[in-house]
Design a protein around this nucleic acid. Structure first.
Length: 640
DNA sequence: TAGCGAATAC
């Protein structure tokens, strides 16, 4: 039995006129003859005020026109728009024989209210009541299927539309592409796309987004290139897709190309571009984009400013982020989240927690992202007890069930300060669904830092049993066993990784000098100034050793002798980037380096000394957080 | 004589 009951339909949906001629369907047009135009125009004038609408509704009842299908239609729509879904539902159910327009309006209402199952249920009920569907109502129910997501229902609707001999309406087709895309059925999405007679810019944008969602970058580009002219939305979808797939520079190139073609970017475009900038950590470029936004008369709404705050904090300029935040007239939970997460990223734990408290004072309810930021702040600041207090308050005070990320934060909080048994017990107490490889990896890293092999081995065992191990997990396991001197285990995980065809993500650091981003891999020899870079590095090695630096050779993993290990450490990508920064910028200029992986202990110790010797501020963003090095110290206070 | 389209941050 199907989930949905629909009458067979003989009209052609593609032409979209609903002829109401089918013999089995009840024809509910009798009330349609009357139309209370006075009430309708009154409703339209007062549609923003619930009280007024209610009183006009009362007037219609007095006049006896409350069953006029046009009046009911208008009322249901307005009630839904005013978020009064109860009014709308009640009215709908008191209406005799609601027609397809009325069903559509309430289904839409349920969708905008987030009640997707209710929307799908109502559509099924429409079938039971033999009301003929049309392309509008099908589009509406498919919207619910997309958002739920409900693949089976969506397929059933698709099947029924096809079986009924209808041509495929274009809006229906667009929603089907979206549905299949969202439900990992990209091939089906493509089949629907290929059936659309006119594959215009909108259809292509939907298809592109589906491809991008599944990492099919080249396929998306092909769809994009199939268009003669692309509009702002299509370009934006392109930039967004590239950025989401980690193709940051390509995304920025597209942004430039868009300008060359004379297509104007809008707020959404900039939000995508800012995301690329923030991931790259390119501060100069970001500042330029920010200025350019003013030139383009961008509306600085909350999402845009949130993106700017995020961009400045991720590019290392937390002060600018703070200024933007302070200037915001209206701050919502997302604005606070951006700022709290930014402060946490910079290890400004006290400030992050203060801001969280201020937010509560302002009566703004925190959401699950707020707690990720706040707990991260606790972790970076070594604030164990406060972390626990806040973690517990999530459910008791704010009614938010902790997710896996929050549990991860707690494990981190305990791990960083060396309370490893407690961290492990915390994991043990959680259900398996709350434990993931990331969490175990982080704890194993803490075990390694605190040299606790006992807990470490238990964690390592659990991690190696994890089904979703990525290159980071293998490397972590290998590093852990190497740090214990158990080379055979270390080698075993390396081998497993190679055999599984899993590639190690190479360490990569970048630094922006004169608006150009210079990237360095570990031991990189490709840079045109490599000679001077390595010369500087040698000098730094010598000077830092005089200051007491001694290479922590156990962090280098391979089973090689100490001299070789020292060499492997000496050319870590962040050191190359810093050396290049030192030779290519004026004295006292702050150096900002972005690294894709976590910084190692050895580089951390050495950079502290480099900052001291050269009297430079050095800001390093690693995968986890910011490190501000100055005069021999790091802002992370060696917790990271 | 009524109602559908694509891209947004933490």
């Amino acid at each position: 039995m199907g989930i949905l009951v629909l009458p067979s339909v003989t009209t052609n949906l593609y032409n979209s006129s609903n002829s109401y001629t089918h013999s089995k369907a009840k024809i509910n047009n009798d009330q349609n003859i009357r139309r209370d135009t006075d009430i309708i125009s009154l409703l339209q004038q007062n549609r923003k005020n619930l009280k007024h609408v209610e009183s006009i509704h009362g007037r219609a009842i007095k006049k006896g026109t409350e069953q006029d299908s046009f009046v009911v239609f208008e009322l249901v729509r307005i009630y839904c728009k005013l978020k009064s879904i109860d009014h709308a539902t009640k009215l709908f159910h008191s209406t005799h024989n609601p027609n397809v327009y009325l069903y559509t309006s309430l289904i839409d209402g349920f969708v905008s209210f987030g009640s997707y199952s209710a929307a799908i249920g109502l559509y099924g009920q429409m079938g039971h009541n033999n009301v003929l569907p049309d392309s509008y109502v099908v589009t509406s129910v498919l919207k619910a299927c997309v958002l739920q997501p409900a693949l089976r229902c969506g397929r059933e609707v698709h099947g029924q539309v096809l079986k009924s001999g209808l041509g495929l309406d274009r809006s229906v087709a667009l929603k089907l592409i979206e549905l299949y895309g969202k439900c990992d059925e990209v091939e089906d999405a493509r089949k629907v796309f290929d059936k659309i007679p006119e594959r215009d810019v909108v259809a292509r944008t939907v298809m592109m987004a589906s491809y991008f969602d599944h990492g099919m970058v080249e396929e998306a580009i092909e769809v994009f290139n199939g268009l003669k002219t692309q509009d702002t939305v299509c370009w934006t979808a392109m930039i967004d897709g590239l950025v989401r797939n980690g193709e940051l520079n390509r995304g920025l190139e597209m942004f430039r190309e868009m300008q060359v073609k004379g297509v104007e970017p809008n707020e959404v475009t900039f939000v995508c571009v800012l995301s690329a900038c923030s991931q790259l950590g390119a501060l100069e470029l970001s500042r330029w984009i920010h200025m350019y936004m003013h030139k383009c008369n961008v509306k600085f709404n909350q999402i845009v400013v949130g993106a700017l705050i995020n961009m400045y904090s991720r590019c290392g300029d937390i002060d600018e982020a703070q200024l933007l935040f302070d200037d915001m007239k209206v701050k919502d939970v997302s604005s606070y989240n951006s700022m709290i997460c930014g402060l946490a990223l910079h290890g400004m734990s006290t400030e992050a927690i203060e801001l969280f408290r201020e937010m509560l004072k302002q009566g703004i309810s925190p959401n699950s992202i707020t707690f990720v930021g706040v707990l991260n702040a606790c972790s970076h600041g070594g604030l164990v007890e406060l972390g626990f207090e806040i973690f517990q308050s999530m459910e008791t005070l704010h009614g938010i069930k902790p997710h896996i990320e929050h549990h991860g934060c707690m494990v981190d909080i305990l791990g960083r300060v060396g309370r490893l048994e407690e961290a492990y017990n915390f994991i043990e107490r959680m259900g398996a669904q709350h434990v993931d490889d990331k969490m175990l990896c982080a704890l194993l890293s803490s075990c390694k830092i605190h040299r606790n092999s006992e807990v470490g081995e238990q964690v390592a065992k659990r991690l190696s049993e994890c089904s979703k191990m990525d290159s980071g997990s293998y490397i972590m396991l290998s590093n852990f066993y190497a740090s214990l001197g158990r080379w055979n285990f270390a080698a075993e995980f390396r081998e497993k990784m190679e055999k599984g065809g899993i590639l190690k993500e190479p360490g990569c650091s970048s630094i922006e000098v004169n608006n150009v981003i210079h990237e360095f891999l570990s031991g990189d020899l490709k840079h045109h100034e490599r000679r001077s870079i390595y010369q500087k590095l040698e000098e730094l090695n010598y000077l830092t050793k005089l200051e007491g630096y001694s290479p922590a050779t156990e962090v280098a993993l391979h089973d090689i002798d100490d001299k070789q290990k020292e060499l492997a450490l000496a050319v870590h990508s962040e050191r190359l980037a810093i050396s290049y920064g030192l030779i290519s910028t004026e004295p006292h200029t702050t150096l900002r380096v972005v690294k894709n992986l976590r910084i190692c202990d050895d580089c951390h110790a050495m950079i502290k000394l480099i900052a001291k010797i050269t009297s430079r501020k050095i800001v390093v963003r690693d995968r986890n957080r910011f490190h501000h090095f100055e005069n021999g110290h790091c802002s992370c206070k060696d917790y990271w």
